[in-house]
Each structure stands twice: as C-alpha cells, then as structure tokens.
C-alpha cells in the first residue's frame, strides 16, 4: 500500500506548490492547506503501514512482539494537524482582513 500513498503524497505536494505559485489569495490558502496535509500524510505513510495489528500488549506479556503498527507517527500527525489547523485558521482570517481592508485579491497587488 505504501506505493499508493507515495503517489498521493507526491500529487498533493505538486498541487500545493502549483497553487502556491498562482497569484490569487484564495489559491494561496488552498496551496498551504494542501501542503500541510501532504506533509502529514508523508509522516503517516513513511513510517510504514501495518494492517490489522494494533500495538496492544497482550495479557501476561511484558513487551510487544515485532511486526505491530507504530503508534508514534500517528501521535506526531495529531499534533501537526492541530497546529496546522490553528495556523491556517489564523491565515484565513488574515487573508479576509487583508482583502477587505486593502481590496486585494491578487498577490501582484501586495506592494506598498
């Protein structure tokens, strides 16, 4: 399954960068959202996907046998998702304020 996610992550990075390079403020925001999701999915898939083997220690055993899923990347992604959610929310508010107060929708107009 990793190959599938590799393609998805690659496509997300490509789309994100394409959107970032366009001039519209809304597309800039979309590009950043896709970029942070691409990074999260990269962490998710690069640590290796294990199907149907949750990392639970069975009763009577002290440690986990090999071959179970790694829970740490998911903990990392949770943190990263929360952070990027907060930051993107701020960024959208900022863009709204900028477009309202300055009447800007095109990045070319972001000159002083």
């Amino acid at each position: 399954m990793e190959w599938f996610w590799a393609i998805i992550v690659g496509a997300l990075f490509a789309t994100a960068i394409f959107q970032l390079l366009r001039r519209n403020l809304a597309k800039l925001a979309i590009g950043l959202i896709l970029l942070s999701n691409a990074a999260n999915l990269l962490i998710f898939s690069s640590a290796g996907l294990t199907r149907g083997k949750p990392p639970m220690v069975p009763e009577g055993v002290e440690t986990l046998a090999a071959g179970h899923a790694d829970p740490l990347p998911q903990a990392l992604i949770l943190t990263a998702i929360v952070i990027s959610f907060g930051v993107i929310a701020f960024f959208l508010a900022l863009l709204r304020l900028a477009s309202q107060r300055l009447g800007i929708t095109d990045l070319e107009e972001l000159k002083e």
Binding site: L35, S36, I43
Partner: peptide, 17 residues
C-alpha cells in the same frame, strides 16, 4: 513561514522513517 514549517515536517517524517 508556513511553507518552511511544512518542509521541516516532511523532513522529520522521512528521518523518522
């Protein structure tokens, strides 16, 4: 800075892998 953070995060993911 958001772009830089995303790149940083991707680097962390690959390094952990």
């Amino acid at each position: 800075n958001l772009v830089s953070s995303a790149i940083f995060l991707a680097g962390i993911g690959l390094l952990y892998a």
